[in-house]
């Protein structure tokens, strides 16, 4: 590829982000009013930078980050374990599918915010109910993608493995799991996104710390610049953790190259 094209591809994402910020600046500084949507009360980028700087200086930032990362990590890990295990069983055994799918299908469309009252009632500690909300958010993408991955396993691969002397358990560990792994990775990646997605909802319960709590609290005290700082922070953390997950996944699956051959 020519050098100038490579350079362009490097610069393009930066330009795109800069253009978004520039549009935001123009719209909010001129108090643009477009009929259906108005920028009259939207804080300007510079105010948000100031608010972000203030948060960076604040001793609370560490607590906010630690609380949120801990909750997301816990909720996600449990969702990954439960989702992959259930997904393998549901995908492979018809009786498990017929037993477990009806309640799961009912639970799936319920939004995380609707779980708040019940989770407060069910979990004695608010920490437990917050982890539960992030768990609910991550569970279904992981579960459904794992099931999809198991269904996609070539039955000839299973037949061959059995002819080569693979036992019942071996079919799971040596064939089904690695064959479904790319699909599981997709599920984990989407699940990580929805985990962060549910963080504000979860941390509405929190009384003190968390990025989601910070965002929600800023809304209740009408500190609009801080809301945007919280939103951007969640976006960045979500993006970072998804990228990390992809790195780990591809390091574990060197044979798998989506859209190309290994």
């Amino acid at each position: 590829m020519p050098a100038h094209q490579t350079a362009l591809r490097r610069v393009l994402p930066v330009l795109s982000l800069a253009a978004c910020v520039a549009l935001w600046h123009v719209a909010s500084s001129r108090h643009l009013h477009l009929g259906l949507v108005t920028f009259q009360n939207v804080p300007q980028p510079l105010e948000v930078v100031d608010a972000a700087w203030a948060l960076l200086q604040s001793p609370k930032l560490q607590n906010h980050l630690a609380s949120s990362l801990g909750r997301v990590a816990f909720g996600f890990l449990i969702a990954a374990l439960v989702g992959v295990a259930l997904g393998l069983a549901i995908g492979r055994f018809r009786w498990v599918r017929e037993t477990l799918m009806p309640p799961l299908e009912v639970a799936r469309p319920i939004p995380a915010v609707a779980w708040i009252p019940l989770s407060i009632l069910m979990f004695p500690s608010s920490e437990g109910s917050m982890i539960f909300i992030t768990f609910v958010g991550a569970l279904f993408p992981i579960l459904l993608n794992t099931i999809h991955g198991v269904h996609g396993v070539d039955p000839r691969l299973v037949a061959s493995a059995r002819s080569l002397g693979t036992g019942r358990w071996g079919i799971f560990s040596q064939v089904i799991l690695p064959a479904a792994a790319p699909s599981v990775l997709t599920g984990l990646s989407i699940g990580m996104g929805t985990c962060w997605f549910c963080l504000v909802t979860a941390e509405m319960i929190s009384g003190q710390y968390g990025i989601g709590y910070y965002t929600w609290e800023s809304y209740t005290v009408q500190n609009y610049a801080n809301i945007i700082v919280g939103m951007l922070l969640i976006g960045l953390l979500g993006m970072g953790s998804s990228a990390l997950l992809h790195r780990i996944g591809h390091a574990l699956m060197p044979w798998y190259r989506p859209g190309g051959r290994a």
Binding site: D154, R156, L157, A159, S160, A161, Q174, V175, P178, A179, A181, M253, W255, Y256, A262
Partner: peptide, 10 residues
């Protein structure tokens, strides 16, 4: 089989 059933991850 007609088409190989090698494990792509090995």
């Amino acid at each position: 089989f007609q088409h190989h059933t090698l494990f792509p991850w090995l």
